[in-house]
Design a protein around this nucleic acid. Structure first.
Lengths: 244, 244
DNA sequence: GTCGACGATATTGAATACATTCTAAAGCAA
DNA sequence: TTGCTTTAGAATGTATTCAATATCGTCGAC
């Protein structure tokens, strides 16, 4: 259980470029969490991760705090020390997460709706293309979940890109990726409801075309709300994987 | 301009307890920013702050990244290195900030609206008390801005407390305090519009009493939206202090 | 005189060393 | 056996040192 760091020439520490360790650590640890290699509820040890990623504790520490601020990791404080654990995946959390994203994208969507008609038309055609692709995939039993995921994300990111300011963009970029954890866990069960999401997207596109801010905002909120409900049902069926 | 760190025995470094440096640094630097001692747009130097707060660069670094994530500090990336600057205060940013908070509190408000009637009644009375106090203050020309600020915050935090889940609470706690920067800059000009906010709060309380989620959510969104508009006008009059 | 290369210095990124505190296990006594 | 105390170790928090790079000024060549 206790592996000595210096087992032989353990890992020569390849020294990756310099200035990339923190970002690397963030991505790698996030990857471990998202893919469940670090199970929800697991205690996180800086030294262990440092060894695993072949770097010192310094960038690991930074990455852990970063991930904590973004919601992947929770903090248990004991006066002065703090232990970090991988955030559990629960139905309630998923619900709140989806609602929040829906509201945030709703703001951006409102921004899109008040753009000049010419721009809106261009955006609509881009959105339509993505949604068409989603519709095709939704009819393909063997579609790779990854592609669905990426197409859906692209759709929503487009809204943010054209309708959100700097602050909202940053916030969205921090929060939205967390859906991936749920997506990956329950992907197979979500795909069969994909056509519903496609229909909701269509409504959003229509509303943008009409230039109606309220309708666009509502449309996106509904998309995420329904998504939350669909996910909630799946979680109820399969149980909360990792909420111990 | 170039102060040597090792000026004599600069500061004996009192060694504050241990385990409190990061939090201290966060609070102190935030205070410097909020009070404008670190002007918007200013470049942030780790070493300088470390000297100023009598600690090493390590907790300073952590605090800076923390503040960055919360929106007080922006990052300018140059491939590998990154310079940090104090986030500018602009009309657009204030607008987006207020809208976001309005949406987030709107979610929580919805949660409050669906609580059992008995609980709602209790919450309403708490809210009413705070709002009554605000109304009294609004008629007092010489009311200390701090008290107004704190009362208003308390009102909104109460909504969060009773209506938001863990994730939303964390998010709100990270975002809402940023309003203080704008509040402090333009406080004197905002006070005279306070009675308007009081009226909006009253509507929120009524809606909670009625147990109508949509109405409560809308009420809070409107409160922040109008607040954003009021602030926007003040910023336009006085110019964007610190957006250079 | 202007442009560019070179170098000194300032500043951030990462690694290592040190300090402190929490945990838990072992020993001892009641 | 149970419960308290002590103590060794493990894990986090902070400081310090080392490394790499960006910046800016200066000097020289054209």
């Amino acid at each position: 259980m206790k592996r000595r760091i210096s087992q032989s020439a353990a890992s020569p520490r390849v020294k990756a470029e310099h200035g990339t360790s923190l970002l690397t650590a963030f991505r790698e640890i996030r990857e471990l969490i998202v893919h469940g290699r670090l199970s929800p509820g697991t205690w996180i040890l800086e030294a262990e991760l440092a060894e695993r990623l072949n770097m010192s504790r310094t960038p690991i520490r930074g990455a852990i705090h970063w991930l904590q601020r973004e919601g992947y990791i929770l903090e248990h404080r004991n006066a002065k020390k703090s232990r970090m654990i991988v955030a559990p995946l629960t139905k309630e959390d998923a619900n709140e997460l989806y609602i929040i994203i829906g509201r945030l994208e709703g703001i951006a969507a409102r921004g899109v709706a008040v753009l000049p008609a010419a721009e809106r038309k261009d955006i609509c055609s881009q959105l339509q293309k993505l949604n068409d692709r989603l519709e095709v995939i939704s009819k393909d039993r063997d579609a790779p979940p990854g592609e669905i995921f990426e197409n859906d994300r692209a759709f929503h990111r487009l809204i943010i890109k054209y309708g959100a300011g700097a602050r909202l963009t940053t916030l969205h970029k921090a929060i939205e990726p967390q859906t991936e954890r749920y997506w990956r866990l329950y992907a197979s069960s979500i795909i069969k409801d994909l056509y519903l999401s496609v229909a909701e997207h269509t409504e959003v596109i229509r509303a943008i075309h009409a230039g109606d801010p309220d309708r666009v905002e509502t449309g996106l909120q509904v998309n995420w709300l329904k998504g939350s409900e669909r996910l909630g049902r799946v979680i109820e069926i399969f149980g909360e994987r990792g909420s111990w």
